[in-house]
């Protein structure tokens, strides 16, 4: 029979549940007012989350995509898939850029980090230029150019569709007019901009409703966790 790891044992799991419950209560204590228990949990969260994402990045990106490419024969048991592969020395480039980025921690050499920043900025600009032009500009305009009338069997459905399609087309045009600031929002242009604001308000309202629902569902999740914890005590 295989031994259960010590941290997966029932006792360790009970301790884990208690730590999680106490930390949850510490965070909720902020609802009363800022207090030492909340500050403790908040500072712990900052440290733990920074280390968590560093570790994830190390094992999921640095080891397989950098170390395993540069030193495949030295990966041994850490990343055995790479052993036997040929070294790809051009991966020195991101390593150098990465180290240059870390020079930001030393004020005398901090200017060198701009080289790495320049790569990041250049990559983001180059990819976003085409990506947004394609998916968010051309595609969205294309999707807005819809036939207003689509023949269907039911007259009510047809009228409904015409109305909805009109709202989409007029809504997009008016909202875009609202974003156009090179001309004063006066006269018929101003009226169209006003309709644009209404469309945007409906969109913000829908987004707001969704955000509230998401947060409340997270809250109910934490509450049900606390109930599980209380039930485990009795």
């Amino acid at each position: 029979m295989e031994d259960t790891p010590i941290l997966a044992s029932p006792l360790a799991q009970t301790i884990s549940l208690w730590i999680a419950a106490l930390l949850t209560l510490m965070i909720f204590s902020f609802l009363y007012k800022d207090n030492p228990a909340y500050k403790f949990a908040e500072h712990l969260f900052v440290g733990v989350s920074a280390a968590y994402w560093m570790t994830v990045g190390f094992w999921t990106t640095l080891i397989p995509n950098l170390m395993a490419k540069l030193f495949p024969s030295r990966m041994g048991t850490i990343f055995p898939v790479a052993v036997g592969n040929r070294a790809e020395y051009f991966y020195i480039v991101p390593l150098v850029f990465g180290i240059l980025l870390l020079t930001r921690l030393y004020s005398r050499l901090a200017w060198l980090s701009r080289w790495a920043m320049a790569f990041i900025i250049g990559f983001a600009a180059g990819t976003n230029f085409t990506r947004y032009l394609q998916s968010d500009f051309v595609t969205q305009i294309h999707s807005t150019m819809i036939p207003l009338y689509e023949p269907t069997g039911n007259i009510m459905t047809a009228v409904g569709r015409i109305f909805s399609n009109l709202v989409v087309v007029i809504g997009v045009v008016c909202a875009l007019i609202y974003f156009y600031f090179s001309k004063p929002h006066e006269g018929s242009f101003g009226k169209a901009a006003r309709v644009g604001i209404w469309v945007l308000m409906a969109a913000f309202g829908a987004s707001f409703g969704y955000t509230v629902m998401a947060r409340v569902s997270l809250l109910t999740g934490r509450m049900s966790f606390l109930i599980t914890w209380v039930q485990s005590i009795f």
Binding site: V168, G196, A203
Partner: peptide, 22 residues
């Protein structure tokens, strides 16, 4: 419908901003 129209206008605006900034 109205949400999509608003989001679409915002997306077009953001895309233009990103393209010019890039």
């Amino acid at each position: 419908v109205p949400n999509m129209a608003g989001q679409r206008a915002i997306m077009i605006g953001i895309a233009l901003g990103i393209v010019s900034t890039s």
